[in-house]
Design a protein around this nucleic acid. Structure first.
Length: 436
RNA sequence: GUGGUUGUAGCUCAAUCGGUUAGAGCGCCGGACUGUGGCUCCGGAGGUUGCGGGUUCAAGUCCCGUCAGCCACCCCA
């Protein structure tokens, strides 16, 4: 028997599943707060659904194979093509803007490393049918509020925002031609990780001379809205190109979330389909990969699904986010816990334990008992190990008086309670405790 | 796909120059403890030293290969 999961795949033991469940719960709660509805699609799709968007070379990165019917298929590497198909099929009947989210497990056949596996869960939130920049603000705010719901502050995570329209205007205004834009984008993307001489050489290979290259570097170095506005004044069409981003930032400020946001033109993301705002969320110390990334892709639904709707969305994976939460101690406690443990003194008490335990379970209390008769001390030890709050001990003497012993395990106190009253008492007693 | 680096018990680690039967702590199981828990003490299980080959009288230790983890690149969710 293989002793471990496939490379890049994870086993979730109960204490690890706790974190995953916590992440999913927060994702769904906050998405619901923004009026987003959950959807899902198949985890396995025709291969061409993905090659249509990104070209045949993408197939090398896909978890694809030929199925028993001879079809070329792939586990889904992303959700957007599925979403595009679903929206296109019912586009006329859906009220706009469409606010949908999903939590798919996605797959990529790639060499894995920290924060990047062959499988992950990713919250996808998309807003479809809204062209205005307030929609961009809405989506960024959703991503930020998810961070806040996890207990992360603006000192923990930063949103770095750029805009294709802005970067295009500045690069073209700085002497880069339309055809040279991809090379310029690649250099902007690598600016933080590579040395400037290497990038200059790469830009030269792309036909961009030294003077224009300096312009690229200057543009990429712009930080903050005022500096960006100043730079835009100096290029043709700059004011117009900068207007949407300005309104998006103003809306975020009005929501009180402006403190999370940095204007940073080195955020590039996939060249293939973003058309406007692009943004990524990072941990403030920047030791991890991006937590979240997204932007506006106004042409994609037309090219994929044949429906012309503006759209924007983001994806937020569980792996990097989970690492950050662990790093900051923001994970729920790793121990399983129950409400009540019922213990028997003798074998004659066991049926009464079963009866009471079942009544407690019917009353909604998390209840356990020892599955085989053992010493009371053993049973209480088990109750401790399961983090029970209350132990109920049933013995012959108590039963003769029509009572059971109710023991508060934390307070180390116990008292006799009439058998007939114990379920109601425990139910209210436990429900009214704070912090449950 | 390329390069670097690391693999010893469930976990964290130890094992001198290559030298006897690979150890410890935590965790797990059992006992001390048959009407009352956390502590303590005692005992036990658990290892093909990732796997395969080579060198050697002798390999956890040295060499080669391979697999896996980690890091960087490529690429991006």
């Amino acid at each position: 028997m293989p002793s471990q999961a496939l490379p890049g795949f994870r086993d979730f033991y109960p204490d690890e599943f706790l974190l995953r469940a916590h992440i999913f719960r927060v994702w769904r709660e906050v998405a619901a707060r923004y009026g987003f509805e959950e959807y899902d699609g198949p985890p396995l799709e025709p291969l061409e659904l993905y090659t249509a968007k990104s070209g045949p070379e993408i197939a090398g990165q896909l978890y694809g194979f030929v199925d028993k019917g001879g079809r070329e298929v792939s586990l889904r590497p992303e959700m957007t093509p599925t979403l595009a198909r679903m929206v296109a099929a019912r586009a006329n009947g859906l009220r706009k803007p469409i606010r949908w989210f999903s939590v798919p497990q996605l797959f990529r056949y790639e060499r894995h490393q920290r924060g990047r596996l062959r499988e992950h869960f990713q919250l996808n939130c998309d807003l479809i049918g809204e062209p205005g920049p307030e929609g961009d603000a809405e989506l960024i705010a959703l991503a930020v509020d998810i961070m806040r719901a996890f207990g992360l502050t603006e000192r923990d995570v930063r949103v770095r925002v750029s805009d294709r329209r802005v970067l295009n205007a500045l690069l073209l205004g700085g002497g880069v031609t339309e055809a040279q834009l991809p090379a310029a984008y690649a250099a902007v993307d690598k600016l933080e990780r590579s040395r400037r001489e290497e990038l200059t050489a790469q830009l030269a290979a792309g036909g961009i001379d030294a003077a224009a290259a300096d312009g690229v570097f200057e543009t990429a170095a712009i930080r903050g809205a005022p500096a960006l506005a100043a730079a835009l004044e100096g290029v043709p069409g700059g004011a117009e190109a900068g207007a949407p981003l300005r309104r998006t930032l103003a809306a975020l400020d009005a929501m009180g979330l402006g403190g999370f946001v940095d204007v940073d033109l080195t955020i590039v993301r996939g060249l293939a389909y973003y058309t406007g705002t692009v943004f990524e969320l990072f941990d403030a110390s920047r030791t991890l990969r991006a937590i979240c990334g997204g932007g506006r892709y106004d042409n994609l639904l037309l090219s994929l699904g044949g429906v012309d709707l503006p759209a924007l969305g983001f994806g937020m994976g569980d792996v990097v986010l989970g690492e950050l939460l662990k790093e900051r101690g923001l994970v729920p406690s790793g121990t399983a816990s129950i409400d009540v443990f019922v213990a028997a003194i003798t074998g004659d008490d066991v049926p009464h334990v079963l009866a009471l335990a079942h009544e407690l379970r019917d009353a909604g209390l998390r209840t356990e008992y020892a599955l085989n008769l053992q010493a009371v001390g053993k049973q209480l030890k088990l109750a401790d190990a399961r983090n029970a709050r209350i132990a109920v001990v049933i013995g012959p003497d108590d039963r003769a008086r029509g009572e059971v012993m109710v023991k508060d395990l934390a307070a180390k106190q116990q008292r006799a309670v009439p058998r007939a009253a114990v379920v109601a008492e425990l139910q209210t007693g436990i429900d009214t405790r704070p912090g449950t």
